[in-house]
Nucleic acid binder design. Structure first.
Lengths: 234, 234
DNA sequence: CTATGATTCAAACGAACGTATGAATCATAG
DNA sequence: CTATGATTCATACGTTCGTTTGAATCATAG
């Protein structure tokens, strides 16, 4: 067989790059940092991946290909069980965001580290990686969009797309989480250990996402009239 | 008077840096790009600001000092008018996030460009700028946290902090908006012009945020029991 | 054992980076 | 008009960047 030494090297590079890209960003991480911490030669990245950009793409591909399949599998199962009936919004949200967060519990699939890298990258201005993600996983987004359209037939499609977008943002921050949260508060929220925090994050986030997804529709007028509706709904 | 030529130079550098930091990130933007596009000498940044890091801090300080005052002023007015009674959550959310989005309509205060830079920076791993923001504006966050605690006395404080955090994330994505949204959908949401989109964004976001903020509390158990509650509440 | 292709290695490349320097140029006060 | 301090300028410094090269080393097939 070919590739005996190389598999270890490739994986070690990917693991290290994933960690450093998360900690310092793409531009802020140098090839020398990666290869040094991975204990491989400087030229190894270019040999195995071709370039720094291709390495970044592979870091994402390794995790997201699996995640996308899991998300679609979860959605397929639910739709098969529901038959003709539309899914509940909570099912769709769980298939998408729940599958993502449950991925964080599996250290072999990148754990929290990769999720935080993902969340940060979505807002980061790295043109090439955003273009890569957009083209490679657009079909997953489309499937979930369509599912939400069917589940919420009375809500304008534009509104659903926007709220899906808002949910992505909330989730991104939820994942980046512990660090950014210190910006909001210096007060110790919970002394619980990491496992516990992760267990509690999913229910917390799901409640928030579903509340936002099913909120009364905006009226596109003065804030006062919106306030009236909100007060009435409460 | 001193500083006649320098005021123009300073402002031109800040404007250009703001735009380029938004487009390519902090690490991805070079001093030579900034000074070249601002039509000033390469040494001008170090002369006027001392270093690239200090320039970045000034880019934020110039906008956020004003924004923080506006936010606190809005909150002060509402609390004065409410007397002893707690504010409505929608008022607090509008004072914080509404003030932010209305800032985007004022091109003299940075417009959408700065807001997108801000949103991206919150998830970006630039240690020094995150630390700067955390220390300089922590008192604003604390004021709004306390206001939410009073407005929602039955909701655990930890839950409020988390939901405030989720709201920040949703807003960050809402602002980054138009670009990232193409990742969610290639389909043309609205052909409306920029002004119109901005007008509609605030009501859309406010509905979502308030829906999330007032969602039923999570129970930290199985997803099934959460689904039951969600169905009952709908 | 030997040949072959895959992988690793040390070293170097040119380019771009942030910063520093000292002279030139400007605006203004006396 | 002249002196002074603020600002601009061209240029260079030392460092680090991503990438390339060609030889050395390895694992395996014949």
């Amino acid at each position: 067989m070919v590739e005996v030494r190389s598999i270890d090297t490739r994986e070690r590079i990917l693991d290290t790059a994933e960690r450093l890209f998360m900690a310092h960003g793409y531009e802020g991480t140098s090839m020398r940092q990666i290869t040094s911490e991975a204990a491989v030669n400087l030229a190894a990245v270019n040999y195995h991946f071709g370039s720094k950009e291709s390495l970044m793409e592979e870091v994402f591909r390794r995790r997201l290909d699996w995640l996308s399949e899991e998300r679609l599998r979860a959605l397929d199962e639910m739709e098969a069980q529901a038959g003709d009936k539309p899914l509940k919004p909570s099912q769709i949200v769980d298939a998408f965001f729940g599958t993502l967060l449950r991925m964080a519990e599996d250290e072999n699939r990148g754990g929290m580290n990769f999720l935080r890298l993902l969340g940060r990258t979505m807002t980061e201005p790295s043109e090439f990686i955003r273009a890569f993600l957009a083209h490679r996983y657009v079909h997953v987004m489309d499937r979930f969009k369509e599912a939400l359209f069917k589940a919420l037939p009375d809500v304008p499609k534009a509104e659903i797309v926007w709220r899906f977008h808002f949910m992505l943002g909330a989730t991104s921050y939820a994942i980046a989480g512990t660090d950014t949260l210190r910006l909001v508060t210096d007060w110790q929220i919970e002394a619980a250990d990491k496992e516990d925090r992760l267990d509690r994050l999913l229910p917390r986030l799901m409640s928030f996402l579903l509340g936002g997804l099913r909120a009364p529709l905006p009226q596109f007028d003065t804030p006062e009239s919106q306030e009236e509706r909100a007060a009435k709904a409460a």
